[in-house]
């Protein structure tokens, strides 16, 4: 193969890897950290075989079917590994610690984007619902006003943006570092070498 051909092949492989890693975001962050390279290797092997068999060049992007399968499998894993709804509710609404086997899920949750939205949306929703219920019942509140709801939302938004670092730090402290079983778990650095434990 000419030098130019090899370079082009290399560029295609890099583009393919970028595309595959984008689609792999369907998987939780920690799974990607631990197993991502392995999965990428298999995807590349499959693509190389397909290219060789079809006589074509190495694909520049992940094929649509594989991408769809990745999305499906990634979200299925998220669904399988999440804590049961009553534990989840206690965690979100009452800030209760989750059992040890969900520690990695908690780390993903706290470090993930939109953490504050996830954490506070329950409070915002119940606040809005309470307000609506009270106004309908004519108790304490003089009629329903969208303006009030908007003001509540805006207030929450501002406060959460201002305090997001604080929330993340305290959540990490309470749910991970101070967890009774956390002696062996190091968040983010992949301290637990085995795959995410199943919840059931």
């Amino acid at each position: 193969m000419s030098a130019g051909g090899a370079r082009d092949d290399e560029a295609r492989r890099r583009a393919f890897a970028r595309s595959a890693r984008r689609w792999m975001h369907a998987y939780p962050r920690r799974w990607r950290d631990v197993r991502g390279d392995e999965l990428l290797g298999v995807l590349e092997d499959v693509a190389a075989e397909g290219a060789a068999a079809g006589g074509g060049r190495f694909p520049r992007r992940l094929p649509a079917r594989e991408a769809a399968a990745l999305v499906r499998a990634g979200w299925a894993l998220r669904w399988r590994e999440r804590p049961p709804w009553y534990l989840w509710l206690a965690y979100r609404a009452l800030d209760r610690r989750l059992p040890e086997r969900y520690l990695w899920w908690v780390v993903d949750d706290i470090r993930g984007p939109l953490y504050l939205w996830r954490r506070l949306s329950l409070a915002v929703a119940s606040g809005a619902l309470t307000y609506a219920a009270l106004s309908v019942a004519g108790v304490l509140v003089r009629g329903f006003s969208w303006g009030t709801v908007a003001a509540m939302l805006a207030g929450f938004l501002v406060m959460s943006v201002l305090t997001r670092g604080y929330h993340r730090r305290t959540a990490m402290q309470r749910h991970v570092y101070d967890h009774p079983a956390a002696a062996g778990a190091r968040p983010g650095a992949g301290g637990r070498a085995d795959p995410p434990p199943s919840s059931r």
């Binding site: 390279d37 290797g41 298999v42 590349e44 499906r72 499998a73 894993l77 399988r80 795959p195 434990p197």
Partner: peptide, 30 residues
């Protein structure tokens, strides 16, 4: 497909029917 394979492997590993058995680095790939 790779995704279906890993879905099955994950479930099998979680159920204790399959376990990891070492790694090798080939072509800079794990």
């Amino acid at each position: 497909g790779a995704a279906s394979l890993y879905g099955a492997l994950d479930r099998l590993t979680a159920a204790g029917l399959v376990e990891p058995a070492g790694e090798a680095v080939v072509d800079g790939r794990v």
